[in-house]
Amino acid sequence: MTGFLTTHVLDTARGRPAAGLRIELHALDGDASRHVTTAVTNADGRTDGPILPGDAFAHGTYELTFHAGDYLRALGADDAFLDRVPIRFAMTQDAHYHVPLLLSPFGYSTYRGS
């Protein structure tokens, strides 16, 4: 089995998936950062496929950047506290990594999902 990476975003203030939120994935090597891909969440708050599929999977340190401010402002939240939400993590096994974001205009949480 090879690994892969998925994500989704839930808008906890509105009680629904966060559709139309842009997400960037970067691979990190020390101070160097390499853009891997950019995706936008669908109506279910998920990307249409793995943000890092098995054929592109490699062990290492990565960062997902969620463009929360753009999403929140598009909904009229001019007073949103958050702009970009970076989540840095390591993938060290050939496994399914799932990194969700629970988002509101003033805070967020994340965890390693399944």
Rank of each mutant, 00 (worst) to 15 (best):
L21N: 03
L21C: 01
L21V: 00
L21W: 02
L21S: 01
R22N: 01
R22Q: 11
R22M: 07
R22D: 13
R22E: 01
I23E: 00
I23L: 07
I23F: 09
E24D: 05
E24C: 10
L25W: 00
L25R: 04
L25A: 11
L25C: 04
L25M: 12
H26I: 05
H26L: 14
H26R: 14
H26Q: 12
H26S: 14
A27Y: 05
A27H: 03
A27S: 03
A27Q: 11
L28E: 02
L28K: 08
L28F: 05
D29T: 14
D29L: 11
D29C: 14
D29E: 15
G30D: 05
G30I: 05
G30W: 06
D31Y: 14
D31N: 15
D31Q: 14
A32V: 14
A32Q: 12
A32I: 10
A32P: 13
A32S: 07
S33A: 15
S33N: 15
S33H: 13
S33D: 12
S33I: 14
R34F: 07
H35Q: 14
H35G: 10
H35V: 04
H35F: 09
V36F: 03
V36G: 01
T37Q: 08
T37D: 04
T38K: 12
T38E: 00
T38C: 12
T38Y: 00
T38F: 01
A39Y: 08
A39T: 08
V40T: 09
V40L: 12
T41C: 09
T41G: 08
T41H: 03
T41N: 11
T41W: 11
T41Q: 11
N42A: 08
N42P: 04
N42V: 08
N42K: 02
A43C: 09
A43W: 06
D44H: 13
D44N: 15
D44E: 12
D44Y: 04
D44W: 04
D44I: 07
D44M: 10
G45L: 00
G45H: 05
R46I: 09
R46C: 08
R46E: 13
R46M: 13
R46Y: 13
R46L: 12
T47L: 04
T47W: 01
T47N: 06
T47I: 06
T47H: 03
D48V: 09
D48R: 03
D48L: 09
D48A: 11
D48N: 14
D48W: 08
D48G: 03
D48K: 02
D48Y: 13
D48H: 09
G49P: 07
G49N: 14
G49F: 08
P50D: 06
P50L: 00
P50S: 09
P50G: 08
P50H: 12
P50A: 10
I51V: 07
I51W: 06
I51D: 07
I51Y: 05
L52W: 05
L52K: 04
L52H: 06
L52M: 00
L52S: 07
L52Q: 00
P53E: 01
P53V: 03
P53S: 00
P53Q: 07
P53L: 02
G54A: 08
G54C: 07
G54E: 06
G54R: 09
G54L: 01
G54Q: 10
D55H: 01
D55P: 07
D55V: 11
D55R: 12
A56K: 03
F57E: 03
F57H: 04
A58T: 13
A58S: 15
A58R: 15
A58M: 10
